[in-house]
């Protein structure tokens, strides 16, 4: 049916089918951005607590002159990228194992993978406190086995904790994305590579990795965005290091009632994340595999 005239005088083609998609994109993406841009140049009457339409550079000037905002933006980019990196390194072996597992194991794998996602963030955060605290599971174990003499302090409320939990929280998304991609890689290609002299690791780097880059890319984009925007985990588990750009924006919108500055900071954070994501995407498409897999539809 696609591409054939539905009624005379009006041919419904592929291009027309894109109209609803375009509308969703405009409404879902452009409008919120526009609102932020407009708010960022408004003024606030801090006595009456009202937002007043204006064309003021005040918020942007504050943003550029406050060094700590840029530190927070940098932290968001780094923790997003770090989570993307750690989850892809850990995610690959898990995803490949799932892809080659027998069918009933795949079902078990899916459940194990998804359960943490459904338990809710707060529950997981308190669970981590129980595991990592001074009198937590790990320290008790280390002390009982006489591996350490006093509890390890850096397990909880440090940047390490944040990195660990962000990796754990986001691992399922990465595994799912790579797994779907790995399922579509023809097993015979791996055999062909082995047949031609590739050891298992050669076959991974020369065949599996290139052909699963679309999944890797999807996982990287998702995990990067989720981890960079994460607020609860760093603030409840990261201790004094747990301040985030998101929490700052929340604070500015709420307690401080500085909507223009909050909007400007949100836009700056968005720009930084977007540019990083573009850079990541550019790196990933350098792999020949991504182009071949995506380009196959045009054959």
């Amino acid at each position: 049916m696609i591409g054939r005239p539905l009624f005379s005088g009006f041919a419904l083609g592929r291009t027309h089918l894109a109209i609803p998609v375009a509308l969703v994109l405009v409404l879902g993406c452009i409008v919120p951005l526009g609102v932020l841009v407009v708010f960022s140049v408004f003024e606030v009457d801090f006595d009456a607590f009202v937002l007043m339409p204006a064309l003021s550079p005040r918020a942007w000037s504050d943003l550029f002159h406050t060094w700590s905002f840029w530190v927070l933006i940098g932290k968001a980019v780094i923790s997003g990228a770090a989570a993307a990196l750690t989850t892809s390194i850990l995610g690959y072996p898990i995803a490949l194992a799932l892809a080659s597992a027998p069918l009933n194991w795949k079902g078990i794998g899916t459940v194990v993978l998804l359960t943490p996602l459904y338990t809710g963030e707060i529950v997981r955060i308190y669970a981590w406190r129980i595991v990592l605290g001074s009198e937590g599971l790990i320290n008790t174990l280390l002390l009982d086995l006489h591996i350490v003499a006093s509890p390890v302090k850096w397990l909880l409320f440090t940047p390490f904790t944040t990195a660990l939990v962000l990796t754990y929280n986001n691992l399922p998304y990465m595994v799912l994305a790579i797994w779907v991609s790995a399922e579509m890689v023809d097993k015979r290609l791996i055999e062909a590579a082995r047949d031609l002299g590739a050891r298992p690791l050669d076959a991974f780097f020369k065949v599996t990795l290139p052909l699963t880059t679309p999944g890797l890319a999807a996982g990287v984009f998702a995990v990067f965005a989720l981890a960079a925007g994460e607020m609860l985990t760093p603030s409840l588990l990261g201790g004094t290091s747990g301040q985030t750009a998101m929490a700052m924006i929340d604070n500015l919108f709420g307690t401080a009632f500085d909507w223009p500055l909050a909007s400007a900071l949100a836009l700056a954070l968005l720009a930084a994340l977007f540019l990083t994501a573009v850079a990541l995407g550019f790196c990933l498409t350098r792999f020949k595999g991504a182009r071949a897999v995506i380009g196959r539809g045009r054959a």
Binding site: D186, L189, E191, D195, L211
Partner: peptide, 14 residues
Amino acid sequence: VNTVFQSYALFPHL
């Protein structure tokens, strides 16, 4: 030993 596979199994990305 090398193999010519039934479905050829050429690497699609190369």
